[in-house]
Amino acid sequence: MKQNVSISAGLPGTKAPRGKADTLLRDIIRDKWLYLMLLPGIIYFIIFKYVPMYGVSMAFMDYKPYTGFLGSPWVGFKHFERFFSEPQFGMLFRNTVILAVYNLVFFFPMPIILSLMLNEVRRAKFKNFVQTLIYIPHFVSWVVVVGIFYILLTTENGILNELLYQITGRKIAFLLEAEWFRTMIITQSIWKEIGWGTVIFLAALAGVDLQQYEAARIDGASRWRQLWHITLPAIRSTIIILFILRLGNFLDSGFEHIFLMITPTNREVGEVFDTYVYTKGMTQGQYSYSSAVGLFKSAVGLVLVLGSNWLAKKFGEEGVY
C-alpha cells in the first residue's frame, strides 16, 4: 500500500520531486487543511471503534461478565474448533450462504431497477408521490410485516390462500413448507426495503447532467439506449461501492426477520448463523462462543470485501479504498 501512495505522489503541477521525504513533507503541508478536517473523524474512529477492539479477544477466552476480560481464562481456538466440528455447521453454512446469494441476486438489483423506473417518470408530482409510498414499509418492523404475511397466507382463512383455493382448489402452507422459506424471506425483504433502497440511487441520479439526455435525443437515441449509455454509467460507481460493502456483511442474514419466520417444519433450511448464535449467546449466555462465530463471519466478510475491491480496481473502477 505504501508503494501505491508514493506512486500517486508525483503530481502534475508540482515541481519535479527531489527526494521522497521531501515530497511527502511538501504534500502534507499543501494538504494541511485537509488533514485538519480529517482529525475529528480519525479521533472518533480511534476512540469509539479501535479502543473497544480488544473485545475481539473474547472469542479466545471463556468470558463471564463477572470475571471480565482480565479474569476470564484464555482458551485459544477452543470455540472455533467446537463451531467447525458441530454437526449443524454444514447445514448452517449452506443455509446462510444460499440465502446470502439469493439476496445478492434477487434483492440487491431490485432498488436499482425501481430507481431507473422512477427516473423515467417526467411528472415530478407523480414521482414524489410514488417515492413516498414505496419507502413507508421500511418503517414497519419485521414483527408487523411477518404478522401481515400471516394474515395473508395462513391456511386458516388467509386471504391469498382462500383466493388460491377458489382458483386451484388447494391451499399451500407457504409459511410452513421448507421449500417456500427462502422465497418468503426474499419476497418480504424486497417488499420492506425496495423503496428505501432507491433513495441512495435517486440521489446519485440527481447528479446526472440533463444536457447529456438532450444531446442523445438529438442524435435519435431511444429511451433504452439513453438508459444504457447515460443513466446507468452515472450510478455505476455507487452500485459497485454498495455491492462491495454488502459483501462485507455477506453472512449476516437479518436475525429478527429469520427468527420470526422459522418454524419447526422449515428449520432445516431456515436456521442460519445468526439464529444459531442467538440460541447460544442469548439464551445460554455463551458469549465467547457467539463471539467466535461472529469473528468467523467477519473474517469471511473481510476476504470478500478485499477480493471484490481488488477485482473492481482491476477493471478500472474506483472501489472502496
Binding site: 479501535y50 473497544p52 473485545g55 469473528l295 479504498y321
Partner: peptide, 16 residues
Amino acid sequence: LAVLFTMLFGGGMIPT
C-alpha cells in the same frame, strides 16, 4: 481501509 475494517470487526457491546 482502517474505516472499512471497523465495518467488519467490532469490539462488541461490553468494551464499547
